[in-house]
Design a protein around this nucleic acid. Structure first.
Lengths: 215, 215
DNA sequence: GTCTATACTTGGATAGAC
DNA sequence: GTCTATCCAAGTATAGAC
């Protein structure tokens, strides 16, 4: 891969945009602000990306790409609802630190003030939704839990929960409340997993009702 | 109550600010935009409120006040988790139409770009959180469900869910996905209510396992 | 490709007439 | 109290030198 100096500037602008979205929000993510973080001229924003909004969308793409690989790996091993809850907790914590979900939230709300932007943000959110649904499907398996909670709905709720908890966590700088929710979800998920194993063997093998550990 | 013409202008500015936040987002809620909606001069924003941000906070106060009464009434009758889920659904639908939660979300994210604003938004969010917790406490009662899900945590999750579902619903103009989540929550809540009644009588009255209807 | 300089627009905020 | 007029800061975007 050839490393032109132009590509470096593009990359610097994208990471600058990510930082700006994270720290100053959509309203504060101006070409000047981003260029200052990237250490280059404000004019380069328009040369390389055409407009500020295009750069912000590129930043959202970058965030998605960065996380998708990590997510897939983490979620691939979550073959129970409890395990999924644990993975979700760790993902949430990582994203809170790195600010990735914040970038997404800022773009969603920022889209409100720019006609047509909402559509493009929505498109970029789709991989996240599909990943969540796939993870849900894998976690629920073909157990009774899947009948209780269809993967599609569960995934929608999961994504919404991520966004909402992120909003609250950054608003008052308290991540413990959100983590407590994930821990509670983990405990409830264990119950759900047990329910699933109890129902599936079709009323012939209820030899034990002890809680099954799903580490 | 004396109705000075000045009070009318103040009110018009506040409702104009609410509309602006709802339709153009925090980034688009400028003094000029708001004044245009209120049908008065932009200078009056500063005369009456000192700054745009102060006006936006007043708008948030107004939204809170408008909804709090309705909420309290609706939630007072929710003495089971299932009934709470139903109330929550109807509240969510109302707020989605009126845009009240949107105003809150815009202020939360907008606070990211204005130092010190986050604190004030957080303060104004507190009544909503307390209301949610009180409703949770009443819905869970002293049943076993309360042990499964502490009211504080449940309330935090509920508020986060509202915010997250609002974000997704307005992003792609699809309210059905959110409503499906509430319906699912309702079904699960019914199960939780049953669990509660089964446990409370202290292992002596399991005469029936049919689902108890909690209309 | 990157910079400086600049044209143009929008927004926050104030002054002063009425 | 409300308006018009205005100042100033900040933002988008482009032109042109290097």
């Amino acid at each position: 891969m050839l490393r032109t100096q132009s590509a470096d500037v593009r990359a610097a602008l994208v990471t600058g945009a990510i930082e700006a979205l994270r720290e100053t929000g959509f309203a504060g993510a101006s070409a000047r602000e981003i260029a200052a973080r990237a250490g280059c001229s404000q004019a380069l924003v328009f040369y390389h990306f055409g407009s500020v909004n295009e750069l912000l969308l590129a930043a959202l793409d970058e965030v998605s790409a960065r996380r998708m690989a990590t997510y897939q790996e983490l979620l691939a091993h979550a073959t129970s609802v409890a395990a999924l809850a644990e993975s979700a907790r760790s993902i949430f914590l990582q994203d809170l630190d790195s600010g990735h979900v914040r970038v997404l939230v800022e773009m969603i709300t920022g889209a409100q003030s720019v006609p047509g932007l909402g559509e493009q943000v929505s498109q970029r959110l789709r991989p996240w939704r599909e990943l969540a649904e796939e993870a849900m499907r894998r976690a629920l398996g073909r157990s009774a839990a899947a009948a209780l909670v269809p993967p599609g709905e569960a995934a929608h709720a999961l994504v919404a929960g991520f966004l909402g908890l992120e909003l609250l966590a950054t608003l008052d700088g308290d991540r413990d409340a959100a983590l407590a929710v994930f821990d509670r979800a983990h405990a409830l998920a264990r119950m759900l997993d047990v329910l699933g194993t109890l129902r599936l063997p079709a009323a012939g093998a209820r030899k034990s009702s002890r809680t099954q550990e799903t580490t």
